[in-house]
Design a protein around this nucleic acid. Sequence first.
DNA 1: ATTCGTGCAAATGCTTTGCACCCAC
DNA 2: GTGGGTGCAAAGCATTTGCACGAAT
Lengths: 145, 145
Amino acid sequence: MTAQLKIRYDSYIQENQLKSSRRRDMIFEHILQIQGHFTVDNIYQEILTIDSGIGIATIYRTVRLLVASGVLSEQTFGEKKGWFEINDLKVEHHDHMICTSCGKIIEFHSKVIESNKHEIAKAHCFIIYSHKLEIFGLCNTCQKQ
Amino acid sequence: MTAQLKIRYDSYIQENQLKSSRRRDMIFEHILQIQGHFTVDNIYQEILTIDSGIGIATIYRTVRLLVASGVLSEQTFGEKKGWFEINDLKVEHHDHMICTSCGKIIEFHSKVIESNKHEIAKAHCFIIYSHKLEIFGLCNTCQKQ
DNA sequence: ATTCGTGCAAATGCTTTGCACCCAC
DNA sequence: GTGGGTGCAAAGCATTTGCACGAAT
């Protein structure tokens, strides 16, 4: 799967007359290691400890490139900032339950919702590109506190 | 329904030792007339033409009050700014299809999704407060262009 | 009178961008 | 060598906040 993403990254760079660079590659490799969701500042802080000279603008630019190339997808989770995650096309689309107390994000997938979504779109003559379903509430742990 | 919202507005002000004021009331009344979704800047521009002395901070403060009192609900629609709409509790919860070409928003409701959502939450021992489902794609009109 | 509401401008948080310089090809 | 990559600081946007003054009870 990592190989798939590498191909997507490389070909995007190729097709758009961009260049690879030490930092670009390093950010890409770093992001590949991440499980789950992250913000630009999350990876900026992490990469700072390895490469103290890096600027946050470079992270922003690289993340934009990765979204444009399809390596990452972006969500807002109802906040006014970007959250990112690896966009693995081989994995089924998933949705999120977000704990409003501790911020924990639980991923899930529902075939029922998936197929109903298509029925609804059909009824409205709407062509679906993507969807985002977020459920807000309390996770198991926070209910007990 | 407008009466319902007025009660919610008035009692929130009462219960929180706030005051009503000419501008607060005017913004509230203005928002009641709005069909569909709007941003703070939308109503600011509109109200400016009636009350040229108003400041955008007042709109922000009033909209926050209306969200806190349950008169309005807020969504991001994947953007990094707030979109608001009247939160009529008597109307069933609805979701949104957003045309990525013209920005048109189509509202819909699905009992199937509604009940499936509760099954999923139950399976994860998650207590639902709210949910947001956004479908992005092309509306009927934009498909033909 | 006192307390809250309001305009203004400054501050904030996240993100983008212009510019001079650096690096890859 | 040339064009893209990068850090830095400045600019952009949406939003919030501090402050002095004005209005509501």
